[in-house]
Amino acid sequence: MRTEAPWGRRTLLAIGALALLCVPLLHLSDYTMRVATMTCVYVVAAAGWTLIGGYANQITLGQATMFGIGAYVSTMLFVHFHVSPWIGGPLGAMAAALAAAVIGLLVFRLWGAYFALVTLALAEMVRILVEYAQPITGGPQGISVPFVRNSLWLLQFPEAKDYYEIAALLVILALALARAVQSSPLGYRLRAIRDDEVAAKLAGINVFRTKMIAFMLGAVLTALAGTLYAQITGFVDPDSVLSITLSVQLALYAIIGGAQVWWGPLAGAALLVPLGQAMTGSGSGAGAGLAKIVYGLLLVAIVVIQPLGIAGFVKSLQRRKRAAPSEAIAP
């Protein structure tokens, strides 16, 4: 029975969380720590996508909108009004939740490819709007976050690696939420919608409201990741935080990791973000091209071999393990 997590599993999770926080003790290189920090940011952002895209299989290709809103709101408040990101971040998350409500109202009646395409189109509209609103958003050039001083209150540190602990804490928070949702009534309702929307309605599920809650919760997570991203990079522009590429990446991290389980985004981003970084780090010319091909082939391979991603691999391994002892007993 899976109703209550056994103590062993809970201990394991606690150890995992602690290990995540203790990574800096390994004294890794600045570059590695920077990649680890960015990986954390993308884990949180992809976890936001998972709630609606994975749990309910509503494949949105507009999650960058939420990331961008989180990044822009906190940055604009910081630059124009000197508001701390600790306040700007939650305000950005609220704005993203509001945006999710409006988008949800428009798209939740659509299904499948139509849903994906319309979310993508709406995200592009948001990007174009931000580019035109130059006086407040900085337009296509974006806004720099001026470095004021090394301060926790301003969420400003000299190096990307200094953000690691905060990013790791946010990962723990986001995954704890995703895990709680998974085993809650909301989680079961989302899975029911994923499997058969009509049957879900016949079982008394308010499909629209259920999707909306998940979408808004996910928007909050992705927006918080956006705020953190802006603080770490010190720079926000439409290409980096509102692009289709980012939307697709977030979906990809979750899908490759296994979008139907809470730890899928962690597995996916932990594999793909460093890989992507290594790829861009491999310079120009034939090497870079080759790296991209390998990256693409890897994605195709994972999706072809196991559509449920890394989590799918693990599940089938577990099933095999469980089946093995009974075979041994059988004469």
């Binding site: 029911a192 499997d195 058969d196 009509v198 049957a199 016949l202």
Partner: peptide, 9 residues
């Protein structure tokens, strides 16, 4: 339902 609709997953 006539066409059976269980949550297959």
């Amino acid at each position: 339902s006539q066409i059976v609709r269980v949550f297959a997953g």
